[in-house]
């Protein structure tokens, strides 16, 4: 905001911005250069800052060694599943909360909102147990009521009921627990509340059903918000760490961000940092591209979420 001429301050501004961009970009630049070098070049001290010609070799080596094809596919399924799931679940949820009047509406909204205070990090083990057996709660109710005994008496011989349905090592397990979103529901609710009453009244007068109103009026109006959330939630889903780490043990089901640390050279191995960096670049590319190409939506989404 230049309201007067301040040549010294302006120079300072430009210099610090350029410095800032260089400092922020340096780790990536360094990784890109390392990914183009051979092992001799990358382990030379200090490493050359002139790119080499090994990029293609390193990328394909990282791809094969880390089984990145499978893992990137898993990451993609997980990120898209979370994105679509979150948006669908919260769109319908917000529609229900804003456009209908029923008894528990306030309670429901409060309950959804309070999940903000329960990130997966504060309920690691019980959530894992839940995913390991979705029917766990039913089973514990069954056991507490002593229903085994009653059923045994009824049938005439000993019987043990055990309910078991596991989400471990499955796409459903990677996606489902992360599809409830307080922030998305809140955002859609706020947005729906700003939509003029007349639209809903007109739709009702024309005899439109609630779902017609949703698909013909609300959904098209929400497109900008949806686009913004797609960017944010895709990045969020792709970068998930703790949850996939907990519920996948099969390397074929793990995600790329988690699988990446297998490419890190340990002290006994040859220092294959060029391979590790090539792998890191592949894995970070999809969310970076999404953010760069949809920057306008992304910034809008971020700043909207704050309110």
């Amino acid at each position: 905001m230049m309201v007067e001429k301040t040549p010294v301050l302006d120079t300072f501004t430009y210099v610090s911005l350029i410095l800032g961009i260089v400092v922020v970009g340096f780790p990536i630049l360094y990784a890109v250069i390392a990914a183009t070098l051979s092992i001799e070049e990358v382990s030379r001290v200090p490493m050359s800052m002139i790119p080499g010609d090994q990029l293609f070799n390193n990328v394909s080596e990282a791809w094969n060694r880390g089984d990145l094809g499978t893992q990137l596919f898993n990451s993609f399924i997980m990120a898209s599943g979370i994105t679509i799931g979150k948006i669908v679940v919260s769109l319908f949820g917000a529609f229900s909360i804003v456009y209908f009047d029923y008894r528990f509406r306030g309670v429901v909204f409060a309950a959804v909102f309070c999940t903000l205070m329960l990130p997966v990090e504060v309920r690691i083990l019980p959530t894992y147990e839940m995913a390991a057996n979705l029917f766990g709660p039913l089973q514990s109710v069954w056991n507490t009521l002593g229903l085994d005994g009653i059923v045994s008496w009824f049938v005439g011989h000993d019987i043990e009921v055990s309910l078991d349905f596991s989400l471990l090592d499955s796409y459903a397990g990677l996606i489902l627990p992360l599809t409830a979103s307080a922030t998305c529901t809140f955002l859609f609710r706020q947005f729906f509340l700003t939509i003029p009453e007349e639209l809903c009244e007109a739709a009702k007068m024309d005899g439109a059903s609630p779902m017609t109103f949703f698909w013909k009026v609300l959904f098209p109006l929400s497109k900008t918000n949806i686009a913004a959330l797609v960017v944010i939630e895709f990045v969020y889903g792709w970068n998930q760490y703790l949850w996939p780490l907990l519920i996948t043990t099969n390397p074929k089901m793990t995600t790329a961000v988690i699988g990446l640390h297998h490419l890190l050279p340990s002290p006994e191995d040859p220092p294959d940092w060029h391979i590790a960096m090539a792998g890191a670049l592949i894995v970070m590319l999809p969310p970076v591209l999404v953010v760069l190409f949809m920057q306008r939506w992304f910034v809008k989404g971020l700043v909207e979420r704050e309110k």
Binding site: G20, M284, V290, V291
Partner: peptide, 8 residues
């Protein structure tokens, strides 16, 4: 300046 945000 924005892209480190996208990196896990």
């Amino acid at each position: 300046l924005i892209w480190p945000y996208a990196i896990a």
